[in-house]
């Protein structure tokens, strides 16, 4: 049975999110996750998060999606080991080497490959399954027919976005942030995407000039929801650790409304 995973950046949000109907939550670990705006939780807070969620039978996934310098990977593996020991249900990672180290050095870990790993096709999924991951998060570019093929040929848990901000540049294929403003927007190095791509630009092409905004759209699975269920999707993710509690609760409620067949 599919589940909906909601973001939690503050423990104060937790009851509200679970009451709205989330089956689980995900968050970052401070210092090892993306986001200077949404800093992630500290280890003690994650401990409390786990106790409160597991008491209610809810899942907890922790994103350690900032990729460290090669010389610091051991420290990251130690953190993964600690979190797995604590009982988190899955660790979300963002780079092949880190995934491979975690699988090898942290037995019984359940590793998910983040959307930042750029998994787009069946052979990508097989590659990450070979590495030892238990789950993958797919981009909205992968349609239900292709997800069906992944579910048919692998034993992976498949997570897709129920709600996200759909940026112009693909997830996992963008270094525009650090190109323009290193230190705050280098997503894979612990920065935060500030959707710099969606700013207003003057354009010039072969003598034609004007002003443009690169597309940044809200994405929500509505009409296609049934197709994703039939394809075998296990988890629906609500993107937005930066959102406030009201917005997250509202999206979870919409998910419940749609999933219970009460329309779009």
């Amino acid at each position: 049975m599919y589940k909906v995973m909601a973001p939690v950046r503050d423990l104060g949000y937790l009851d509200g999110i679970l009451e709205a109907g989330a089956d689980g939550v995900y968050t970052g670990l401070q210092g090892s996750s993306r986001g200077r705006v949404c800093e992630g939780l500290q280890e003690k807070e994650i401990e409390e998060l786990l106790i409160r969620c597991h008491k209610k039978g809810k899942l907890v996934h922790i994103a350690l999606n900032a990729i460290p310098d090669s010389r610091l990977t051991d420290k990251l593996i130690e953190k993964i080991s600690y979190l797995v020991g604590m009982g988190v249900d899955a660790i979300i990672l963002n780079e092949v080497g880190i995934v491979s180290l975690a699988v090898k050095r942290v037995p019984y870990s359940s590793i998910f490959a983040s959307v930042g790993c750029g998994i787009l096709n069946i052979d990508d999924a097989l590659f990450f399954e070979d590495l030892g991951v238990r789950g993958i998060t797919l981009s909205w570019m992968v349609d239900p027919e292709e997800i069906y093929e992944i579910k048919r040929r692998t034993s992976l848990k498949v997570e897709v976005f129920f709600y996200a901000l759909r940026e112009f540049i693909q997830r996992g294929k963008c270094i525009l942030g650090p190109y323009l403003m290193r230190g705050t927007t280098d997503l894979r190095r612990g920065g935060n995407c500030i959707n710099i791509c969606s700013a207003r630009y003057e354009i010039n092409s072969n003598g034609n000039s004007g002003v443009c905004l690169l597309p940044l759209e809200e994405y929500m699975v509505t009409d296609a929801f049934k197709s994703y269920i039939e394809a075998g999707v296990d988890l629906f993710k609500i993107q937005g650790r930066e959102f406030n509690i009201e917005k997250i609760r509202k999206i979870v409620s919409i998910f419940r409304h749609i999933s219970e067949g009460r329309g779009n």
Partner: peptide, 28 residues
């Protein structure tokens, strides 16, 4: 990485170069 897996299986002796969009960040 899916393309890598396929090429490695279909052309095991072919030399492969991984490009910049493979997101290689670590020696691991």
């Amino acid at each position: 990485y899916g393309v890598l897996r396929m090429i490695n299986r279909n052309f095991p002796s072919l030399r492969i170069h991984m490009g910049s969009f493979a997101n290689i960040y670590t020696d691991a």
